[in-house]
Each structure stands twice: as C-alpha cells, then as structure tokens.
C-alpha cells in the first residue's frame, strides 16, 4: 500500500459521522468492495448508492449489520434541489450506525462529489477512494469520451486502488499516478478501508475548492463615465485582464473593448447595450464605486 495522503485536521467536528466516497467508473468493482466492507465491518455503517443502475449491494449483509442502504433517484442536474438526498441524509441521521459510505455514480467526478458531500450536515468527509479496473484501464485511458473522467477520478482521490488485475499496477495507470495501490482480490481488506478508519484522526472539509483564477462581474457605469476615465481605471488596476461592453451616455453609446495591451472605444450604432463586463485575476474583490 502506498502511504495515504495527509489530510487536514482543522475544522473537524467530532460529532459528525465520517463519510467515505467510493468513486470509479462502471465495472471498477465499487459494489463488490462495499459488499466486502459490509462483510468485514465491526460496526454498522450505512450505504447510499447514487446511481440509477441496479442496486446490487447485498441487502442481507446490510440487514445483518443493522445498517441502511438507500438509493438516490434524481433531482436537478445542475444544483442540489432533490427531495431524495435531503430526506435520506436526514432520515439516516436518526439511525444507529457509525459511518456512511457513499457509492458514487460511475460518471461522477470525484472532486465534485467531495465538495458536495462535504456539505452534508451531520457528516464529515473522511476520504475519497477511487477504484480503477486494471484490466480495462488501457481502453478507458485511451477513450476520447472517458479518459478525462478517469484521470480526474484518479487525481482527485485520497487513495486509488486497482482492481481485477493481480500482476501489479498496470503500466498505463502507473504512468499517470504514483499513488495507486492494489486491492487484494480476496482475504481481509486493508484496515484503512474500514469506514470508521479516519474518524479519530482527521477530517477534511474543504476538498476540491480552489480559489478561482479569474473573477468576473458586469457593472452598469454612471452616465458621465468617459472612455478616458475607464482607461485610467484599467491602468490603475493591473489585475484587470479584459473589459468589454457599453458606456451609455445621455445621448450616445460607446462600445469598449479592452485587454491589458489594447484599449478601443467606438461609438455604437445602437444604445441598447447592457453593462460593462470585467474579468480580473485573483480572488480579491474589485471596488467599482469610482465607475458607477
């Protein structure tokens, strides 16, 4: 086993139950692993399956552990408005279990899951484990539709395990990450895979959220703002990379196009422009009060 990545321990809330995300493309062995974890478990844990594929988690094992298995159905594709997720996470909190395992959909990006699950109240994201099918890896990594996804699932995981191939990590996987271990096909699971493993050591709550490279905003300049004043503002703020839009005066409108190297303002034929867009570098706010 390779060493686990160090995890942040700040902001860890002790009363929260640890949440492990199991990611990986279809056929990587996620359900098989979860069934093995259930068979090995020393304390009951709950499983949420976020996939509309067949539910194959062994119900008998769940029942034996007094845990719960839930399948999520759906909701809005771009936000989290879903009766299901909220109700089920909330319902689960009443149950007696010590940890939650979230089986990701095969096409879920690990980083996005990490940020979403880290927001679930009553749970603390402990780790993201990505499984990769060692036999299928060469095909997946050369597939135009899938290779970016597979690489992302590997890059965003705390721990990557190859499944199904016994003769060492496949060279195509080894070449993209040095952090891939092998999941033994039988016998006891590594202790680190126990859902509650990280509970006493650390938690991680800000996974995957990076400061944005650029910010942008549309402003509505005051009517007496001239191109000259706008240009001066841009010069004074070296973080501004791009400005485009309209200065609308009482009688005319001017279309402005600016980059750091170039400032152009020309009268517009129509005055229906709506605002002026700024793009600037870094995550600090820009004060636009001089312009509005």
């Amino acid at each position: 086993m390779p060493p686990l990545k160090p995890l942040k321990s700040s902001n860890f809330r002790r009363e929260d139950r640890p949440l492990t995300v199991i990611a990986g493309y279809l056929g990587a062995g996620k359900t098989t692993l979860i069934n093995r974890m259930l068979a090995d478990a020393v304390a009951p844990f709950a499983v949420i399956v976020n996939d509309l594929g067949a539910l194959a988690v062994d119900q008998a094992l769940i029942a034996g552990q007094q845990g719960s298995t839930l399948t999520l159905t759906n909701g809005c594709a771009c936000c989290q408005i879903s009766a299901d997720l909220a109700a089920q996470l909330e319902r689960l909190r009443q149950d007696d279990f010590s940890a939650l395992v979230f089986e990701a959909s095969g096409v879920a990006k690990a980083s996005r899951l990490a940020t979403l699950t880290s927001q679930a109240e009553g749970y603390a994201l402990a780790k993201v484990v990505t499984l990769v099918d060692g036999l299928d890896a060469p095909r997946l990594l050369s597939d135009a539709y899938l290779s970016p996804l597979i690489k992302e699932q590997i890059a965003a995981a705390d721990w990557v395990l190859q499944t199904k191939r016994s003769e060492g990590v496949h060279p195509s996987l080894a070449s993209i990450s040095s952090n891939i271990g092998q999941l033994p096909s039988s016998g006891a699971l590594p202790a680190a895979l126990a859902p509650e493993y990280f509970f006493d050591q650390s938690g991680r709550l800000e996974a995957g959220i990076k400061a944005p490279l650029f910010q942008h905003r549309v402003i509505f300049p005051r009517p007496d703002l001239t191109p000259g004043l706008l240009e001066a503002f841009i010069v004074e703020h070296p973080e501004i990379e791009r400005v485009k839009g309209w200065l609308v005066g009482p009688t005319d409108a001017v279309l402005v196009q600016a980059t750091r190297a170039h400032f152009q303002a020309r009268s517009g034929a129509r005055a229906q422009g709506q605002g002026l867009q700024f793009i600037w570098r870094g995550d600090a706010e820009l004060d636009f009060s001089a312009l509005t």
Partner: peptide
C-alpha cells in the same frame, strides 16, 4: 458549494 448545504436544509420546505 455552500449553497448545496442550504438547499439540503430547505428542500423539505421548497
């Protein structure tokens, strides 16, 4: 991402 937390809490109402 923080909105996801709020939405999960608001879901039963909305």
């Amino acid at each position: 991402n923080g909105l996801a937390f709020a939405i999960q809490k608001l879901n039963p109402y909305i």
